[in-house]
């Protein structure tokens, strides 16, 4: 592993991201129903306006990894496209490393790196290393720094075993690792990753997570990550921004999200007396009963913690067996998405 902070690079700009009251609406034509409607739409198209992102405000500090989460169609990718300068916001303010992305696309391009899931920026017919050389020239990376960075990426991602293979012949995991290297070759202070590990096996996922962690902790890069992989979120992100239907639902730490949406648990008890009468306790409800097996769950806003609940159940009932179930991050996010959507 490479030791020391910023060994081969020199991140120039401060990589903060600021987003204020960001809104994006799309206007598109739609067909009217029926054959007559279709003909009418040809002459007089029916225009509809869709709001993809509405009044979103958040910021990311330099050297921070923020997970931008939300269900499909929540507005995550649209937000990232505005931050990368591909999309022009309808209203609101965006600043990435001190640059307004859509106003200064080329300047912004030097400050950012991006990987969009399974979409590769590498040239399909060329060996990956040839793609790196092309990008080196496009970004004007000096030869010595280029070599040092390639060496560093190789050490972290084991690229040299396949970087002379044509991209079309690489596996998904190999290709995404090359894409990550390609996105960071010019040493950008800010990195946007839109579902970078989608479809990868667990070993490669872990390697990529290690790489990202290194980039944030050791190299001081600011990373904005979107993913549906909650293991990834729990391993990499301390802070999470949750959006749904284009609106910001929550901006906080994982702990805060757990407290808000995931303070849920189940206590599964087997009663010593199958006929014993069971009723709810303060803040504890009977969720299910089948003979001696009773499932207790939280009831209302004053529900106790899982450990308090366990204690109370044992105090009130004679049990022969008892087990706890706490919500994992996936359950928490499911509750958050559903809660936000309702």
């Amino acid at each position: 592993m490479i030791a020391g902070k910023q060994t081969s690079g020199d991140i120039q700009a401060s990589g903060d991201i600021r987003v204020r009251a960001l809104t994006k609406t799309f206007r598109s034509s739609t067909r009217r129903p029926g054959a007559l409607g279709t003909l009418r739409s040809l002459v007089n198209p029916l225009m509809v306006t869709k709001t993809a992102v509405e009044d979103v405000t958040f910021s990311v500090a330099p050297g921070e990894l923020l997970a931008l989460l939300g269900p499909n169609g929540a507005g995550k990718s649209t937000t990232i496209k505005m931050l990368t300068g591909i999309l022009v916001p309808t209203s609101g303010e965006v600043s990435v490393a001190g640059v307004v992305p859509h106003r200064e696309r080329e300047r912004n391009a030097r400050n950012i790196g991006a990987v969009f899931g399974q979409r590769t920026q590498l040239w399909w017919d060329l060996p990956a290393r040839e793609s790196f050389a092309i990008l080196r020239d496009i970004y004007g990376v000096p030869e010595d720094k280029y070599r040092a960075r390639l060496e560093e990426f190789d050490e972290l991602l084991e690229l040299s075993t396949f970087w002379d293979t044509r991209v079309r012949h690489l596996s998904l995991g190999q290709r995404v690792r090359c894409d990550l290297a390609a996105a960071l070759l010019h040493d950008p202070p800010v990195v946007f990753l839109d579902e970078p590990t989608i479809g990868m096996d667990v070993v490669v996922k872990e390697q990529v997570r290690g790489f990202l962690k290194y980039q944030v902790e050791e190299r001081g890069r600011t990373v904005l990550l979107t993913t549906h992989d909650m293991t990834e979120v729990s391993r990499l992100a301390e802070r999470v921004v949750l959006i749904n239907d284009g609106r910001l639902v929550m901006d906080g730490t994982l702990e805060e999200i757990r407290r808000k949406f995931g303070d849920t648990w189940l206590v599964r008890a087997t009663l010593a007396d199958p006929e014993a009468a069971v009723s709810g306790l303060p803040g504890i409800a009977v969720v299910q009963r089948e003979g001696p097996r009773v499932v207790f769950g939280p009831d209302g806003p004053d529900a106790p913690t899982v450990h308090q609940a366990l204690k109370r159940v044992i105090e009130c009932y004679e049990v022969s067996d008892i087990a706890l179930e706490e919500a994992d991050l996936e359950d928490v996010m499911r509750a958050a998405y559903q809660g936000a959507g309702s």
Partner: peptide, 10 residues
């Protein structure tokens, strides 16, 4: 969707 990279380079 790889056309986006054309707009992300200097």
């Amino acid at each position: 969707g790889t056309i986006v990279y054309w707009f992300l380079r200097p």
